[in-house]
Design a protein around this nucleic acid. Structure first.
Lengths: 220, 220
DNA sequence: AGCAAACATGAAAGGTGATTCAGGTTACGG
DNA sequence: CCGTAACCTGAATCACCTTTCATGTTTGCT
């Protein structure tokens, strides 16, 4: 069984194991990520691993939870300062892509969770959707988003982000040779195209054609 | 090394191995899918496996290619009779969801390909996107779709389908208890919501509202 | 300083699974 | 009804991994 560290040294050791595990799972995959590799990468003895984690699956789950919390934090934080729904969408997605660029582990690990830990995978997606759907519902009440099922929309929009991120962030921009290892940002035109799809998909229907404009629009 | 069968018996044996592999990879995952399990499920001797496949990874790749060809065929076939772009989208997605319901192996296997065979995974997605982007470009030329980058749009739309399928097909409809093992179709309202997003996202801009009356916008 | 409690360690036990191979069985042209 | 090529087989080999544990080291407290 795992145990919580009781001293500063133990805390540090546990954290190093977690970080190493994220690395190794992401680069080698669950199957090839042996405990030996994780402890080596962490610079820690093999046996020590079992002081803090019950086993391979247990540390995997913890890595998933950790990544989930971090990516949601990044997105929420980015969207918090937005003034309208569209701004929130754009900044949220931008934060997601940035996180993806800086932590490719997110994708690789979530995908593996399909078999390694289906429950953890499901929790990951559902947590993101929940807050996304909340945001959409609120925007809907405010009239910024047309009537729609916020949950279905949230899954669809998250899907767009997922594959766009995979293609344009993880699979380095196809074609243009870029050798440096620097994490690339989402190309502007890709984000623009994505936001255009989203905005048009969510926008309220235009008011009845030639709708009687309110008083803020003056006609003489 | 693998070898092609030279007799009817050999052909049958190879096909049984492939089918069994799809099953086992999908239900147990690559890691837990031992050759023993595959050959047992196929009702074939262990050693026989190596007459037809070079190893575990080789048969995995072949399963991926096979699934890819089948799902694309299903989608293309469904979209072929459509009269306009929107119809094509709807029928294509419907076919994709139906295929997903009938062959959950598709998702589970593609996701694992991330590590097992990144090349095969990439080919899978890229093949789907290529034909999707072609369709969009053609519709664009025909004026049925607004100006946009067909490739970016194709990735985004495929992403919607991927996550919607995962949520509403693979994760049996959340909440409503349905015990039977029958593959469920996509709920109508989900498909409707999805199509609404797509249609609005792709539709050409409405022609200048109410016949472009130049003279009514006066700035003195 | 002195002493528990925490912490660290890696050799070895106990498993599992991919792949090989030497030896049978089946199919089919002649 | 032969003979040969194709096909089939599963025990054995080899490699590698998770997990345990007996033994040593460090930390924090008094």
């Amino acid at each position: 069984m795992s145990a919580q560290p009781r001293t500063a040294r133990g805390t540090r050791t546990r954290a190093r194991l977690l970080a190493a595990a994220e690395d190794v799972f992401a680069s080698a995959g669950y199957h090839d990520a042996s405990i030996v590799r994780i402890t080596e990468q962490a610079g820690i003895g093999l046996g020590t691993f079992y002081l803090y984690f019950g086993g391979k699956q247990e540390i995997f789950d913890e890595v998933v939870n950790d990544l989930n919390a971090r990516v949601r934090h990044a997105m929420t934080e980015a969207a918090r300062t937005a003034e309208d729904r569209f701004d929130a969408e754009r900044e949220g997605f931008r934060a997601f892509f940035r996180f993806t660029a800086q932590h490719p582990a997110l994708y690789r690990i979530i995908r593996q969770a399909e078999f390694v830990s289906p429950g953890a995978q499901r929790r990951h997606y559902e947590r993101i959707v929940r807050s996304y759907a909340h945001g959409l519902a609120a925007a809907q009440d405010a009239g910024e988003v047309r009537p729609l099922d916020p949950e279905v929309a949230a899954w669809a929009l998250m899907g767009m982000g997922e594959l766009i991120g995979m293609r344009y962030i993880l699979w380095e921009a196809g074609g243009v040779g870029e050798a440096d290892g620097a994490p690339r940002d989402i190309p502007d035109h890709v984000l623009d195209e994505l936001m255009a799809l989203i905005q048009r998909g969510l926008a309220p229907d235009a008011p009845p054609p030639a709708a009687p404009p309110r008083e803020d629009v003056r006609h003489d």
